[in-house]
Amino acid sequence: MTWLVGLCLLPAAGWGVFLFGTPALIVLAVSIAAAILAELASTLPFGRFTLRDGSAFLTGFIVGLLMPAGAPACVPAAASAFAILVVKQSFGGLGRNWMNPAMGGVVFALLSWPGPMSQWIAPKGGAVQGAVMPPLEALRAAMAGPGAKETTPLAILSSSGFTFSDLDSQVLGWINTHVFSPMGISLPPGTFDVLIGHVAGGIGIVSVPLLMLGAWFLLFRGIIRWHLPVMYLGTFAILAAVFGGLGSGNGWFAGGPGFHLFSGSLVLGAFFVAPDPVTSPMTNKGKCIFGIGLGTLTFFLRFFGSLGDGVAASIVLGNCAAPLLDRWTSRRVTGTQGGAA
């Protein structure tokens, strides 16, 4: 099952390797190798061999997918090692960790190396002017500065001098003239790039459509249930739509939820990480509350926080509260206490 989740992430990873080239491959290899080595080092001395369950591989894989392709090798290695040794094996290994190991490792890396964690590489065929940044980072930088008086995220990006690829302008030009101009609307520049993930960013999170493909397979096979991701993305989208424009002075209902859903690690987090059965609540009711909480946290941390795009941080915070949620939402009696409080 774990292997299947990894398989569903492969298309997105392949796209990242295609876009960012060899550095991306190196980062992925280093993070997976570090996770496997850490797993071996912490289980073999006790006579256990746990690689076959695939969880160490998946942890390393997800850590690597969230890294920028330009990160020096020590960063993914340390993040994966921290994830396995401290977050997982200290508590006794798979199924006993209360925090998602990959997210713990990523948060550790974000706290430790904010600089290397934003060493982005320009995507193949993308326009490069000045510093390479994912659109989300550029948007946050533009919104922190003065004069971001446009109404949508993409318009803010354009007016702040962020450029998209030639492919984007060609495709959008064709679509706008042939499809949308008769209807009197036109798609802003950048729509195509953001939609297909032809931008700088974490290796495995730029391509939302390919992630959705994998997620759809997981949902179809019943490996994850819809409650948590739908609640998570829905809450986030509503909050972003309603309040997201306040920061840039555009007032209510001007947040541009579409842009935010398609940038950052939101989709990967919502479908592949947050529903992790070990670290999320067990009941459907608990999952719904958990998803709403994650959506709210991600909204706040993305628009006001400084720890990456807010997804890893909110999942980790959600993990802290998940056992408490379980107590409230399930009848199951745990621990030494006689009855539910």
């Binding site: 401290v86 508590f91 006794g92 006993r96 209360w98 980790v316």
Partner: peptide, 29 residues
């Protein structure tokens, strides 16, 4: 309470694991 029902490494059981839990929570916060 969740950890109490799980077998955890012996040297870490109890107080040390609570400290590690608190440390990870501190990172999250």
């Amino acid at each position: 309470e969740r950890l109490e029902v799980e077998p955890v490494p012996r040297a870490l059981k109890g107080f040390p694991l609570q400290l590690i839990t608190a440390g990870l929570m501190a990172y999250a916060f």
